[in-house]
């Protein structure tokens, strides 16, 4: 089941046949370069967490409840818990390659080498999306291609299902309503919204997008419907298998 909810899918025709063969030839080790681009017009990504891991150690499964550590990432951008989960499972982990938030249109890249642990055949990548209550971008438990080459994946936005999407300013600690509004969010989001009527959904799913409004000093939402909405995909990941 999890396989069918892969957030990203192969984009380039040149590489598709290679990937099909690669999937059946899964090797145990890989030396990768990974880049991620924020494709949105007005959504910021909090520090990215990426890891090559055993496929049994997915960070989440669509349709199932989020872990407490996924919740902390999705509601406040705190990747420490998920990073510890991956490290405990012997994963190769990269934290915060962009050195802070990844702005709209910006890219960051990093290297991953799984040679030391042949069981780390799958790649995951997550970051919170701001301004949202508990939205995040993810590449979820994707089999790393074994054949050297360049592979492109488009990533979708998920809702962790842990917090009501009231769309007003608040805090990032798990269980604290509202969204945190650091620097660029503070300047682009509205104020004094009355809050969108909503409830935590209870399970991870594809995000239905923000509602927003066009009233920067009131209305139901502190999110700007012209600036902060998105349509999937929200990020593009390019993996070069060396």
């Amino acid at each position: 089941m999890n396989h069918f909810f892969r957030p990203a899918t192969l984009l380039r025709s040149t590489l598709l046949g290679t990937a099909i063969l690669g999937a059946s030839l899964q090797a145990g080790a890989a030396d990768l370069t990974v880049s991620i681009t924020n494709l949105t017009r007005g959504v910021y990504f909090t520090p990215v967490l990426a890891g090559a891991h055993n496929p049994a150690n997915a960070l989440f499964s669509a349709g199932e409840a989020a872990s407490a550590n996924l919740q902390a990432m999705a509601e406040g951008g705190d990747i420490a818990g998920l990073s510890a989960d991956l490290s405990a499972a012997g994963a190769v982990v990269v934290e915060n390659p962009a050195g802070g938030m990844l702005q709209p249109g910006m890219s960051t890249s990093f290297s991953l080498n799984t040679d030391a642990n042949a069981a780390n055949t799958h790649l995951s990548l997550v970051a919170m999306m701001l301004p949202t209550n508990d939205g995040f971008v993810a590449l979820n438990n994707m089999a790393i291609p074994a054949t050297p080459g360049t592979y492109t994946y488009d990533l979708n936005a998920y809702d962790a299902g842990t917090e009501a999407n009231d769309e007003i300013r608040g805090g990032g600690a798990p269980g604290t309503p509202g969204f945190p509004a650091p620097g660029p969010i503070d300047t682009s989001a509205g104020n004094n919204g009355t809050g969108v009527a909503s409830n935590a959904e209870g399970y991870v799913h594809i995000h239905r997008n923000v509602l927003g409004d066009t009233d920067a000093s009131g209305g139901v939402s502190d999110i700007d419907s012209v600036v902060h909405r998105w349509l999937n995909p929200v990020a593009r990941v390019v993996i070069t298998v060396n």
Binding site: F4, F5, R6, P7, T9, L10, L11, S13, L16, G17, T18, I20, L21, D154, N156, I206, N232, P233
Partner: peptide
């Protein structure tokens, strides 16, 4: 159901074509 999660992707028919080509 699974296909509804795919955006801007090659279709299954392409996958088959490419595999056949290889």
């Amino acid at each position: 159901m699974t296909k509804s999660f795919r955006l801007n992707t090659l279709t299954r028919s392409l996958a088959l074509i490419s595999a056949a080509g290889l």
